[in-house]
Amino acid sequence: MKPAVFDYSAPESIGEALDLLAEHGSGAKVLAGGQSLVPMLNFRLARPAHLIDVNGVGSLSYISANGALRIGAMTRLTALGESGDVAGAHPVIPAAVAQIGHRAIRNRGTIGGSLAHNDPAAELPAVLMALDAEVTARSADGERVIGMQDLIEDRLFDTTLDDTELLTEIRIPAAAGSSFGFREFARRHGDFALAGVAAVITTDGSTITQAALGAFGGTHATRLPTAEAALVGAEAGDAAFAAAGAGAAADFPATSDVHGTAEYRSHLINVLTVRALKDAAGQAGGGNG
């Protein structure tokens, strides 16, 4: 229950961090908030030769709401959940953040760390997929922009980031006029959810014009294309929501473990999807906001 030996660097700038990544590559691991990585170090499930601690890189922590919402990768979850700019642009984010672990976890955990770690039960990868977010990945050789879908693909505890790349920023396009629902089921408040879903929909009053659903708690975070197809063009109401729930269960990569069977999780995602859509429709109609 103690980490194995590693070399430790604490760069103070992005450039310094990128040089260290270029130098150490696959032998290095970036330490963000540490709420997943440090347990893995303690269990020696992770044994990096070199730990690059980016907590001292102040320029990675910011929230900017000019146009698209831009969030620095080292923004702590507490700051993310309490930001008026984030809540104003995408209220689904604070709704999801409130369900992540406990206060002590959110005080250290970061948005970039959550995405780069990509735990299949984590809320943020699925939520940011539903919001069509993009991330910036930088290396000593340059930078590239990666869509959430391409960052995560079908992976778990892994992303398409290269060993020498650092995730520096998350960018979320505006979604004016949309409404959201967020539902998850966990055995205790703050535990990893057995299944959960973020739904973001837009209506023209009665007909659904856009629908984006991201689910977590399966084998990997995923959009729910069958559920989305059942919604777009349909009238917002019980029939469309039931069809979307069934679609979600078909799309969801459910898996069995000690906490529940795949069948049970598929049932959960069906029910949670219907509830999330009802929440979203209630907001759109000025109902239970």
Partner: peptide, 21 residues
């Protein structure tokens, strides 16, 4: 949560941080 402390006034788990941090 047994190792909970306050770090710069905020509650954190001291087993999930390195001392050097």
């Amino acid at each position: 949560g047994a190792c909970t402390i306050l770090l710069d006034g905020e509650v954190v788990r001291s087993c999930l941080m390195l001392a050097v941090q």
